[in-house]
Design a binder for these strands. Structure first.
Lengths: 102, 102
DNA sequence: ATACTTGTTCGTAAATTACCGAACAAATGT
DNA sequence: ACATTTGTTCGGTAATTTACGAACAAGTAT
């Protein structure tokens, strides 16, 4: 896992983000959060046909990748996009997707 | 794996692409191919510190996800971006990344 | 015909991912 | 105090991923 040569830091960061995005449930959550500002995992749990524990894991993964952040609010948890890292990811992907014009 | 509800086809397709992009080596290859038109896997093999067979697997995965295509040319294989699917992925990601403005 | 180059496939091992239900922790309501 | 709601963590299992070297197939060169 230590390709110090050839492979750039950007590529590694992008791969990390992409990996987190590499599951339908996680894309669903990300898209939801990128549209509306926040959501509670309870609502997600109602909509998605998976166990609470499974959803929790997916959310953890998005959090570990830095794409979202959770905030405890009473007994619930409110999830939002992690704006800084989201901006970073955006930037990376935009650059990457526009590369043919360079 | 059959979330017929809630999760859209777009989200599933994007997750598929993202998954394929979720490894540093594959991002490296994709970025290379998106800049220059094509490359031979031999050159990749020279640059990347992984076994030929491992590289071959990564290339297969990018191919299975539809992001690249390979063409046999003599004893070598020439790899290019799969333009149609690339355009599709581009479109999907662009839409996704610009969602906050909607 | 034989050797070499090139890249895929096979077999295998180790690590990671995905999923579930049960158990748990923490806050809220009664 | 006790029950309820909410969400995470734990334990376990099955599937997938990542990696390697060896074996193989196919084309090229001698």
């Amino acid at each position: 896992m230590n390709y110090k040569s050839v492979i750039s830091e950007k590529q590694k960061r992008m791969a990390r983000f992409a990996k987190a995005m590499g599951h339908p449930v996680r894309m669903y959550v990300l898209e939801l959060l990128s549209k509306q500002s926040c959501c509670y995992s309870g609502n997600l749990s109602d909509d998605l046909p998976i166990a609470k524990s499974t959803l929790s894991q997916h959310l953890k993964e998005l959090k570990d990748a830095g794409l979202i952040q959770g905030e405890i609010e009473g007994p619930k948890v409110k999830y939002c996009i992690n704006k800084d890292n989201w901006a970073d990811a955006r930037e990376l992907f935009m650059q990457f997707l526009n590369q043919e014009n360079q």
